[in-house]
């Protein structure tokens, strides 16, 4: 089952976002969340989208998932419209989204049950996956009995169980503490390398995006547009030590400058109002970045 999903993934999971525009509301109250975004995730690729908060990156992901209808443009996976949610696009949410009334194993089995798999096969598949994530000992626990990091690991395993072609992740580690977050990034990398599926990952954490991604898209402040596309050529497997390498630091500096610029734009109005604007302009973007 696993080798099969690995082979299948090599050729599929190709996400193409073509001149996407998303607007909410009508007339005067209309807000443009995503403005003319074109991007892609190649089969088996790990792509991150990073940008200031409120830049529409989650909206973009929700269009790919099929929850939000685009106002213009289109999103396809392997040539097919993603106009409704489907099990071939697994999703991991920022909030813990495990079903509290199901045990860990039953949560993982949920998608397989929808596929009509019989109980024995479901259990076998769920146990194999839980074993890979080091969660087998907790298969009969309820989500409320788990730590935040474990819940999110179950969330990833649950999304992978249906052998999706792409994994969509909406700031999945945003609610975790820094140490757990680093561990989770390693686990995710391991799972991704094992399954070789495409990943579209939303984050606002620069280190996280560099550590995980093959490619990073930087989005502008609202309305969200693609500001830059940055390939990450750091060798894999990546280790925490790489955070000190010159290449890593160069990419980090570049990303930080890009995002600071956008954050400043996003906060421009607020800064002016608060009387900090003058101060901010004097010390320049770097200084305000510290201030933020």
């Amino acid at each position: 089952m696993m080798s099969q999903s690995a082979d299948q993934a090599k050729a599929t999971g190709h996400i193409v976002v073509d001149h996407l525009r998303v607007r909410f509301g009508h007339n005067a109250a209309m807000v443009e969340a995503v403005s003319d975004v074109s991007m892609e995730v190649k089969p088996g690729e790990f792509v991150s989208i990073i940008g200031p908060s409120g830049c529409g990156k989650s909206t973009l992901l929700n269009v790919v998932a099929g929850f939000v209808k685009p106002s213009a443009g289109r999103v396809t996976m392997d040539g097919k419209h993603t106009d409704r949610p489907s099990a071939d696009r697994g999703m991991v949410f920022q909030q813990y989204s495990l079903f509290p009334w199901l045990t860990v194993r039953k949560n993982v089995e949920f998608g397989l049950k929808q596929k009509g798999l019989d109980a024995n096969h479901r259990e076998e598949a769920a146990r194999t996956l839980l074993g890979l994530a080091g969660l087998l000992a907790f298969e009969n626990h309820y989500p409320d009995q788990l730590s935040g990091g474990m819940k999110q690991r179950v969330g990833i395993v649950r999304a992978l169980a249906t052998s999706p072609r792409v994994l969509l992740m909406d700031e999945p580690f945003g609610a975790l503490d820094a140490q757990t977050r680093v561990v989770m990034q390693q686990i995710l990398t391991n799972m991704w390398q094992r399954f070789r599926i495409s990943v579209l990952f939303i984050t606002h954490d620069i280190d996280e995006s560099i550590f995980l991604s093959d490619r990073i898209y930087v989005m502008t402040a609202r309305p969200g547009r693609i500001k830059a596309e940055i390939p990450i050529s750091l060798v894999r497997p990546r280790t925490p030590d790489m955070a000190l390498s010159p290449e890593y630091l160069r990419i980090k500096q570049q990303l930080r400058d890009l995002i600071t610029e956008e954050s400043l734009k996003a906060m421009g109005g607020e800064l002016k109002d608060s009387g900090l604007a003058g101060f901010g302009m004097e010390v320049g973007p770097q200084g305000v970045a510290e201030l933020i």
Partner: peptide
């Protein structure tokens, strides 16, 4: 009902009745 649970279930292939 937490809407994120409904979205999660839809992503896992749940039908309307499911």
């Amino acid at each position: 009902v937490d809407p994120v649970l409904l979205r999660a279930a839809r992503c896992l292939g749940a039908t309307e009745f499911g």
